[in-house]
Amino acid sequence: MESISTATTHGARDHARSQAGLRAEFQPTIPAAAALDRPPGVAPDDMLWEETVEPGNYAARVLPRGANLRLTDLAGDTCVQLLVFNAAATTERLNLPDTVKIQWQAYLGQGALLLSDMGRVLASVREDTAAGHDLFNAMSTQARNDTRYGSGSVHGSAPNARDRFAVALSKYGLGRRDIGPAANLFKKVIVAADGSFTWHGDESPPGGRLLLRCEMDVLVALTVTPHVLDPRSEYTVTPLGVTAWRGAVTAGDDPVRLSIPERARAFENTEDWYLS
């Protein structure tokens, strides 16, 4: 490309166009039908999203009800902050206290639901090969990352999750008021009997996967930044693989739905929303 002069508009145009077709380590695959890692049995036209998310960066997307969303810890040291909204009415969003309280369970795992603040199910966990997750701890802020890593700004070496979300959500008409507490995925944290946190963040394997099914039309926003309890002094987090494809709406005899009465009613409320 250095042979193309950019001294004129035509030269600059040719230079710009000559870059087409390059592949970066971190980018979405467009169109998704051309996904490099299409799951077995999924038709190209059913692919919705393939992206490798850079450490420190973010991704956001609207996915339809029934879609499968697979998050892969490619190198075994990713950490994902996840927010989920009802795409059609974004005042409805993931509510972590309701998620743990209603299911009588502090830890996210296979069969769990991500519940909204409107008593509906935004997504369900269909497969989970990570060591564990965390629904209690905070996300990083610029001030925190400035102190801990020297630079927390989004243009610096240790981007913070909160400012990443502010940008990601702004593109969907949302703002800083909408950055609720996020689920921290792929880093296991245990609550001890005295209420203190115990870090088990080094236990998730490379290739660990969390497969979610979207139970509503959702806006998913995520950042890939180190967990706030991560004891390492360096900003350490590895890439996230994101894959999504179309799927069927959850059926009435679904075992997750029927596993406990609270989940069954969450599905009933969700179906009630879609009646209108």
């Binding site: 309701d98 743990v100 309280k101 209603i102 603040d117 008593g119 009613r265 969450a266 409320n269």
Partner: peptide, 17 residues
């Protein structure tokens, strides 16, 4: 500070419609 606030909507899941 982990239990959240009660709502009509969450009550419908926890106790019934």
């Amino acid at each position: 500070t982990i239990g959240g606030a009660c709502s009509r909507e969450s009550n419908s899941l926890r106790y019934g419609h």
